[in-house]
Design a protein around this nucleic acid. Structure first.
Lengths: 201, 201
DNA sequence: GTCTATAAATCGATAGAC
DNA sequence: GTCTATCGATTTATAGAC
């Protein structure tokens, strides 16, 4: 592993444990036993480190969606999709909480809005697919609301987990929110959909 | 209005617009055309300002719950309750987002956990009341899940609104999340409950 | 590529006069 | 109560030797 990769790995570790704003470039350098100057050679600004990590997070999410696309649409693979997404988000949780500090940077340099719109389109198609399979009972307006819910849920659970579930393990935390998602699905699932959900524990 | 109150008012205004971490004591002093030293006379530490504002927020929430307690339990008054809570939270949104910086402070000096547990108990009773009125269809496990959902929703909507709904007005933003809440309620409402919800536009 | 040393800015907080 | 002036710590970022 080269220095650049080492920096990214250690930065993420520190960000996750202490939050981005509590970790200075000095801290990262010290943890890696390299000099602050060396840090700046590889990443001229702290935001460059954050941006690089954000892109890795985004790639991870893309892979989850691609994996789903290759499977038969079902509520089980839908849950799988979200387990993947949540696991990925959890791995980068330090970036996703307390990011108001770098919000402006992200807005300018990271394709926030495009990514968001792409995801909404993707999810819309996924929901339509599940409805067409007779798994979800979704009217036009239900679909919009469930989409709003999913967008909200997918972006916000990590905030709450960071503040309120800190003592829990990674797996426990993720399962807590997956359970909440399953419950939501069960409320709008058809009988066929409910039978699929029943297969899960 | 005395200086202390002026400081609190202006601080909140600045926090809401720029986020706590982007507003220094100097900024507040400059905006009020007083000296930084004077700021420190009234609030020795920046966290004292934040703590005072948090307590005002908490009082506002308490009033919402008390108001609900004096009404006849119904899904309409339940929605009223949340409109009140959301309006209050929105007014103090600067404190509620990006608060990882002061999380430790809040944990130590503000009765976070007690407040949280009190609210969960309160909400549990409210839900039981609504079920007893024949408005909600809630099994034991449904109740737990809906409680988890409400706790999550109530704490997290403000994060999302701050990042994704910034261009919307206060009223639009709040109504967006109230609409989401109504939809959730409609999923677990009895026929009687659904008739109440239908009264709302 | 990596280092040491330090610039330059900003922050919270304090000292002491009035 | 309010002011001016400043301390002391911390941060990002850079300069220049090796």
């Amino acid at each position: 592993m080269n220095t650049k990769e080492k920096i990214l790995k250690k930065s993420l570790e520190l960000f996750n444990n202490q939050g981005v704003h509590n970790v200075g470039v000095r801290d990262i350098a010290r943890a890696l036993e390299i000099s602050p100057g060396n840090m700046s050679y590889h990443f001229p600004k702290k935001e460059d480190v954050i941006l690089a990590l954000m892109e890795k997070l985004s790639e991870g999410n893309n892979i989850c969606f691609e994996t789903y696309g290759q499977k038969e649409p079902s509520l089980l693979s839908f849950i799988d999709l979200y387990e993947g997404l949540f696991t990925n988000q959890y791995a980068y949780r330090g970036l996703l909480i307390g990011n108001t500090e770098f919000e402006e940077v992200l807005r300018n340099r990271y394709a926030y809005k495009q990514t968001y719109e792409k995801r909404v389109n993707l999810l819309t198609n996924i929901l339509i697919g599940l409805r067409n399979k007779g798994l979800l009972h979704l009217s036009e307006s239900d679909q919009d609301m469930f989409l709003s819910f999913l967008a909200f849920f997918g972006r916000s659970w990590i905030h709450e987990s960071f503040i309120y579930q800190r003592s829990a393990t990674s797996a426990e935390t993720i399962q807590h929110y997956i359970k909440l998602l399953k419950w939501q699905l069960s409320l709008i699932a058809t009988e066929k959909g409910k039978r699929q959900l029943a297969q899960l524990a």
